[in-house]
Computed example of a mutant assay.
Amino acid sequence: MPRTLNKDKLLKMIKDPSPQVRMKIASLLFRAMEKNILTPRDHNGAAAMFAIAVDDPDMDVRRNLARLMCRSRHALPEIVATLACDEIEVAGPVLKHSPVLQEEDLVYLSRNGGRAVRMLIAGRDGLAGPICEALAESGEADVCRLLARNHSAALHPRDMARLLGRFRNNSRLSSEIMARPDVPATLKREVMREVSSSLHDFLLQKKWVSPQRAKSVVLGAMENGTLDISLTASEADLEHLAHRLAREGALTPTLIMRSACAGYLRFVETALSVMAHLPRKRVQSMLRGRGPFGIRAIFTKAGLPKQAFPLFHIAMETCQELIRESGGAGEDAGFHCRVIERVLTKYRDIAASDADQLLKMLEHFAADARRIERRQEDQRSIAA
């Protein structure tokens, strides 16, 4: 602090009739605090000056103080807390950026402030779970949408589910939530199931297809969607998904065969580990080992139908062949289509007849895979 400035002179300047003078002295004091060049006594004096400035009748003075302190870790907590409760024109920078505001402060402001306050808080970086919960409880669509779009916010899956339920008719908000990288696979599948149920009811209402065909279309879409979800799931998330499917009775032989014949290896290994009650690493070594014995052992332990084993064995061998041919690239965009086409070619050679039920199922899987591949190519072309 310049030696020419004493406490009495500072007090006189902070109460000067000119707002510009009051803003200038506040700026000088704050820069001195930031540079840590004040003695403890001077620091206390500066704090007293800020206590006067934060109640200044001129909004420009308070707004200037908020802008000075909004990003500083050295700002005085009591001054920042007062600024955060000021009019939104003053509080805005502090609410959006201040690292001094604590979690409990932000929870309180989220629950007791106005919509504009919540909008500013929802855009903050690194929001903790309790703050996200308080914002989600507001039920304000624009606040919740901004929160969903904030990928640095620790939005709990429970709160995601609540928002999806509350705003089920708000497609923009639902899309923002589903675009988050931390949406669990189980929640994605739950949303997909609701959409599939609506599709089923729509098809029956319009009488465009028979009830049996409507059920088949929806089941196929659900299975393909589940496998698509599994591609981006973490190991833990994929395991949770497999356990959920098992509890719902949805971890069916048809789904296992579809995933095997299309080369969704991570899903196959995780699903079989759940069905056989074995560690995933153990299942992986059995499926990827040389010869059919390990594959047959895990297939049998998982309780899958014996007549499907030849097809399952071909699928597992084909996956390993293609992985070796691609230099270990694994499940890229075209991998699944290549696997199922080669499996189909191999299985035709051993099928009892064209009426073989497994062959029909495999041809249906292949048709689905081709449609998905064409759709992905179209999407890539549009994006380019």
Rank of each mutant, 00 (worst) to 15 (best):
T345Y: 05
Q284M: 09
P305W: 01
M316Y: 10
V343E: 10
R324W: 07
L311F: 03
P305D: 00
M316S: 12
R348A: 10
V339E: 06
R280H: 05
G334S: 15
G303S: 11
G291V: 03
R348F: 03
L287K: 09
V283Q: 08
T318H: 04
Y347W: 01
R348P: 07
A352C: 01
G289M: 05
D349H: 13
A351E: 05
G289S: 06
E317V: 02
F335Q: 02
F309Y: 12
T300N: 07
F312I: 05
S326P: 13
R338W: 01
P305E: 00
A297D: 11
I323F: 07
C319W: 10
Q320P: 00
F293Q: 13
G291A: 04
A302Y: 14
M316L: 14
E321Y: 03
K346F: 05
G327S: 06
G303V: 05
D332E: 12
D354S: 09
Y347N: 01
A297N: 13
F312P: 02
G303H: 12
G294W: 08
S353M: 04
G303T: 06
I323M: 08
G291F: 10
P292W: 10
D354T: 05
A308M: 12
T345S: 12
H277D: 12
G303P: 13
T345E: 15
